[in-house]
Design a binder for these strands. Structure first.
Length: 306
DNA sequence: CGCGTTTGACCAGCGC
DNA sequence: GCGCTGGTCAAACGCG
């Protein structure tokens, strides 16, 4: 944890603003006083903007640290758990073949061992690059295995697995026929109120409903992964009450995220900044507290300079 | 009647 | 080879 202690970020709000003292001459005209007041307010505004920028930068640093921490946790967790046995599925091969278009083909090899190795590597590659897991908080009484992630899904199967008494539902992306993204949804063994959605593959199309990104950003914490975008569907065939609370990326790859499959971080950052600024300025308590702090500070400065 | 969901049957990988 | 298991298919069903 040295890296975190060394890069400590002070997130406390510094309300010490270097506003120039209000120079209102006793014998000056009201117009000059207004101009001075305007200049003072402008300076305050500028200072507050700088503070907000600083806050956002601090947020960015903290978010980066969180990502590093989560990735670290995932790596150690992955090392401890043995890889799940999974048979090869045609869809997976299809996904891989599309992924290696233009690359070096290994199909020329006729050796069975090589083919086996290639198949294994293929599966591992697919697993690393395409699989992500999302946890959705929902009502424990809600028995529907439906989650709200902005895409339309078609359910094609349900199965009770051995390791979990809750049934597992299988979904295919219904937004585009060519999209081979699949999703498995199952209740967590530990917490029945948590839905675990496992996404396989990457959407090759934009989200059907570019919705209310603010609502999606409210509670979605994305840390890597590839499939789901942070959004909430206005209406989908599988409309859900469950909302995503966190994403744990099972992949180790640091490849850039697809613009079609998720919102880029700068975009998220921008939206978050806007949302933060909006919520702060709309909050009467915050503005009142800020005004009190500023006026108090000004009063204090005036007192010390007298 | 069309579309989506349900559910039992089937398929394929893996361990013994 | 056989059984277990996860994943997929497709006919039946329900709903608007």
């Amino acid at each position: 944890m040295d890296q975190y202690s060394s890069s400590f970020v002070d997130t406390s709000l510094d309300l010490t603003i270097g506003v120039t003292r209000m120079r209102v001459e006793e014998d000056s005209s009201p117009a000059n006083a207004l101009v001075d007041e305007l200049n003072r307010v402008s300076a305050e505004n500028k200072k507050l903007s700088e503070m907000l920028t600083l806050m956002c930068e601090n947020y960015n640093v903290l978010r980066k640290q969180l990502m590093e921490y989560v990735n670290k946790s995932n790596t150690t967790e992955r090392d401890q758990t043995s890889p799940t046995k999974k048979r090869k599925s045609p869809a997976r091969d299809e996904a891989f073949s599309s992924a290696i278009i233009g690359g070096v083909s290994e199909s020329s090899s006729t050796d069975q061992d090589d083919q086996y190795l290639c198949k294994k590597q293929r599966e591992e590659t697919v697993m690393k690059e395409k699989v992500s897991r999302v946890y959705y908080k929902t009502e424990a009484s809600d028995t529907t295995l439906v989650v709200k992630d902005g895409y339309q899904w078609r359910k094609y199967g349900q199965k009770v697995t051995r390791d979990n008494p809750s049934p597992r539902a299988y979904f295919k992306c219904a937004c585009a026929p060519s999209c081979s993204v699949k999703k498995k949804v199952q209740r967590s063994v530990e917490d029945q109120s948590v839905l675990v959605a496992t996404y396989e593959g990457e959407h090759n199309h934009p989200m059907p409903s570019q919705i209310d990104s603010n609502a999606g950003l409210n509670r979605y914490i994305s840390v890597g992964g590839s499939a789901p975008s942070a959004a909430t569907a206005k209406k989908s065939s599988s409309s859900s009450l469950a909302e995503p609370v966190t994403t744990i990326d099972l992949t180790e790859s640091k490849k850039p995220m697809s613009p079609t499959s998720r919102i880029d971080f700068p975009e998220v950052h921008k939206l978050l900044v806007e949302q933060m600024a909006s919520s702060l300025t709309k909050d009467p308590n915050f503005t009142a507290a800020l005004a009190a702090a500023v006026t108090g500070r000004l009063y204090q400065q005036n007192q010390t300079e007298k």
